[in-house]
Design a protein around this nucleic acid. Structure first.
Lengths: 250, 250
DNA sequence: TTATTATTGTAACATTGTGTTACAATAATA
DNA sequence: TATTATTGTAACACAATGTTACAATAATAA
């Protein structure tokens, strides 16, 4: 759904935007041993949705997705992947938009472009939780992180979109190693393993995980991290910068 | 691009269809040790394109894709996979459509819906070459198979779409085993291997390939095939029906 | 200072999967 | 009946991964 409030979007004919096409972004973060998803809440409606938007008449779709994610997170250079087009007729439901329009300005006109059928292109993004600054637009009460495993009811088919986005993330994890975009620059092997375990939803054996990660040749050991715990201090690692740029299309 | 010629599609406002959204299908077949792609040629224009179409105002996008592929191949129960949305502004080029319209009826109006920007949802389909019946629509001179490695120039970005479809097919081949949809019911191990080699674009070692295929437990040995060659006769195999249904979402 | 505790780093072995070589089986032909 | 080409598969080598075990060590307690 839209996360912008400029004049064009509010106008009844949607001047400046491609009609009938939207995009929704599943923005993943990782914090406190949990996968998080960024969600927005429309003002005074209780409607919670994925950040989304529309495509400018002369804008590339992928650029529109970048723009939307940048606006909600304050980040540039975002890892983004198109994963599915949600185009069933059954997802057409103008009621939430009517509610949003009623609350925001005036009685919705039945021929308003936002009340017509939309298909939506799904993207997922991986961002560093510690760097992202969730930023609501004017029409939102909030823009905030939610636990993936404890999400509120979402508008339309957005719960389905999150589910499919996670499935795609899991499928691509092996060969794209996308997980790294979710961690801060330096991290311990345990943190890296926990991230993978969280995404995959299963436990991994520590020696095999460590051996595999080190054998890939994409990590460099930076320093020791004194945790204050009564045990050996773990090393900090980071991804070797030049190689990670190629491998992870950031 | 469109492969229909009903009244609605030809009308200037595109009544009955979603505006601004199209779909293009990369239909793969396998014959004579070659991957084939089904292409259509627009009447008296020399314009060659992927079979494509538009989405009815109350039609699911995936159903529209099924409809398009069915119309061009005469098949039902088609293996179909959405693989990418082509949404760059640079792909917008009304000239081919103007040419097609000029040849078919009248001078194109500048505000005709087919001359506006479209995004296109890419699908790839895998069909049994021996069962498919390439069928042109009225506005085509032909609908026919072309060697993937020897394709003519295609309209707009359709060459790119084929390329990306093949990449997706290769990436998905391992774990989805989609290749089976391209073979007739019974086949030899050699034919199966040739198919995989053709899709992947590289040679595979025969003993390892045979061992892996048999170990998957998805093949049953049906009978011997007497080829007439001066050598041992190969066995015929087929995919075990109940399992293949689950694995390959046909 | 020294033993205790929890966790990290990694060696070592087992198991599985795949690459490669070799060879017996066999259908048509000479 | 020998020859030829191809198929089916055994056997070994090697690599990747699963699993167990243990030394190293940072903080704490004795």
């Amino acid at each position: 759904m839209s996360d912008q409030t400029n004049k064009e979007e509010g106008s009844a004919d949607g001047a400046g935007f491609i009609k009938g096409v939207a995009l929704d972004a599943v923005i993943f973060g990782f914090h406190d041993h949990q996968l998080k998803v960024l969600l927005v809440e429309y003002k005074r409606t209780g409607i919670i949705a994925l950040p989304g938007g529309f495509i400018g008449e002369q804008e590339n779709i992928n650029d529109a997705a970048k723009r939307v994610v940048s606006e909600r997170t304050g980040l540039e250079n975002i890892f983004l992947d198109q994963f599915y087009v949600f185009g069933d007729y059954s997802r057409f439901d103008p009621e939430p938009f009517k509610t949003i329009m009623r609350v925001n300005d005036a009685a919705p006109r039945d021929d308003h472009w936002l009340l017509k059928r939309f298909i939506s292109v799904g993207y997922y993004a991986l961002v560093d939780f510690t760097l992202a600054k969730p930023t609501p637009a004017a029409i939102f009460d909030s823009c905030a992180w939610y636990d993936l495993n404890n999400m509120p009811q979402l508008v339309q088919d957005h719960t389905q979109i999150v589910k499919k986005g996670l499935e795609t993330l899991r499928t691509n994890l092996d060969y794209k190693l996308v997980g790294l975009n979710l961690l801060p620059q330096d991290f311990t092997m345990g943190e890296l393993q926990t991230l993978y375990e969280t995404i995959l939803g299963k436990r991994l054996l520590r020696p095999a995980f460590q051996r595999k990660m080190l054998s890939l040749g994409i990590l460099e050991r930076v320093a020791k991290k004194w945790t204050g715990g009564a045990h050996k201090a773990p090393y900090l690692y980071r991804f070797i910068s030049d190689k990670s740029g190629v491998l992870f299309s950031k």
